[in-house]
Design a protein around this nucleic acid. Structure first.
Lengths: 250, 250
DNA sequence: AAGTGGTCTAGACCACTCT
DNA sequence: GAGTGGTCTAGACCACTTG
């Protein structure tokens, strides 16, 4: 009756699944990114376009984009646009170690071994492989200042990484993640590093030119792509005395 | 002349120091928190009040509060208010270790030694103490399932922690940070943990009931209060084989 | 019921990047 | 200059907590 009762902000259906509008939009955009609608490195449509497409105000659409940026899915650049984050860059294992020589240097890489094999139970589980499935197994040595410093034991699921089973390892890049993207279409978006202390087996010690049973830091990395699938299990070994890592606590 | 040229959004002076309005307000609020205007645990005025006090829109003031919340200075609770974060809770050192027994258990605490002494050069520098200044030195053993598991070496600057130099250690709490707040008015707001690998000295090994030169994880924690002052240097030793820690990478 | 923070709108203006 | 994201406003409404 009264003209002052005008509804200024039209309410849509409330929260279909307990999600706020911007969280629902973020989830939807995330799914479209994972489905490959916008490939890694490419730009999304502008805020204006996405907002009208979703039928919300620009500010609401922005919250969704900011959420995904905070989660590492997107990258926003002032004046240029919003982009799907490309592969994790180096994710440098050297942040865990401090060797006296060659600080800041890019570690040289040498693949010692490449073979197809059935991975251990635990690795197969992480990779989501059926029992007895085959995978690519790599052994890689990384040197700094001409000295062997890190030994890496890498498992890759095999239908996906077939390209790496065929090309000669001598021509491979020093950084694997960009190579995975380029040669196999696999984009590492997120990873977890689990640190433990151990001792080197005689074989490992020989590669690193350290005495057998020398104490080592063991870092197991699980790498995931945009869909949440684990695409690499990598275990890195290095001299325990060179290990150091600092964590911020708030 | 034309009525349509009305300036809807009055612009204030631009960015006095390259800071956006909300970032400047956040810095100002942070300083007021550090100065003790709102003690840890207490509530700030409401968004409405702060916004009119600062002469900005509520949304702008909100961005400042959200920034400080993300930085761990404030804590926002829907329906209740915005609060200055009290001391870091446990900041549980046990997240670094996995012992077979007593998981989830609260570790028993026993102070082995308390003395006033001149701290080592490095500790004095971290604490910002003048050369030769005295400090409180504690040695503390933490047990799980009746077995000694962690040895802690703690340095506290002395004018500040005088209260702890006088009361009997038997009555101390198992968690130190809340005790610092209660007895000394020191609120730990932030900390850094630096992990390294080492071997136990004979004395350390004896306390932990391990063989001398046993491999250990050494975690050095620097604790800071709201003003950014370092208020505690704590080094924790535990069996290297029980160490584990997982880091998320994005 | 009153007060708090959380979501959302519609729009203006600013700062940056590319061409 | 056109297009992008970044800041800010003024206000309505929603959801949660407490008396």
């Amino acid at each position: 009756m009264t003209s002052s009762s005008k509804l200024l902000v039209p309410r849509l259906e409330p929260h279909e699944a307990g999600l706020s509008r911007y969280a629902a939009i973020a989830a939807s955009l995330r799914a479209r990114v994972a489905a490959g609608e916008w490939p890694p490195g490419s730009a999304l449509p502008s805020e204006q376009v996405l907002a009208s497409e979703q039928g919300v105000a620009v500010a609401t659409l922005r919250r969704a984009l900011e959420l995904l940026a905070a989660q590492g899915v997107l990258e926003r650049v002032h004046g240029r646009g919003t982009f799907v984050r490309a592969s994790l860059g180096g994710a440098p294992m050297l942040r865990f170690f401090r060797f006296g020589d060659g600080n800041g240097e890019i570690p040289a890489s040498r693949v010692l071994q490449r073979r197809e094999a059935t991975p251990p139970e635990e690795v197969a589980r992480e990779l989501g492989l059926p029992h007895g499935a085959r995978a690519l197994h790599l052994l890689r040595l990384r040197c700094l200042g001409g000295r062997p410093r890190l030994l890496e034991d890498i498992w890759l699921p095999l239908p996906l990484f077939q390209a790496l089973a065929e090309t000669p390892t001598a021509g491979w890049d020093a950084l694997f993640y960009p190579m995975y993207a380029q040669r196999c279409g696999v984009h590492v978006q997120r990873a977890t590093d689990s640190i433990a202390f151990d001792t080197l087996t005689p074989a490992q010690a020989a590669h690193l030119q350290l005495p057998a049973r020398h104490p080592c830091a063991r870092v197991q990395r699980l790498a995931f792509d945009l869909t949440g699938r684990c695409v690499e299990v990598r275990t890195t070994y290095g001299d325990a005395h060179a290990f150091h890592y600092t964590i911020q606590i708030t």
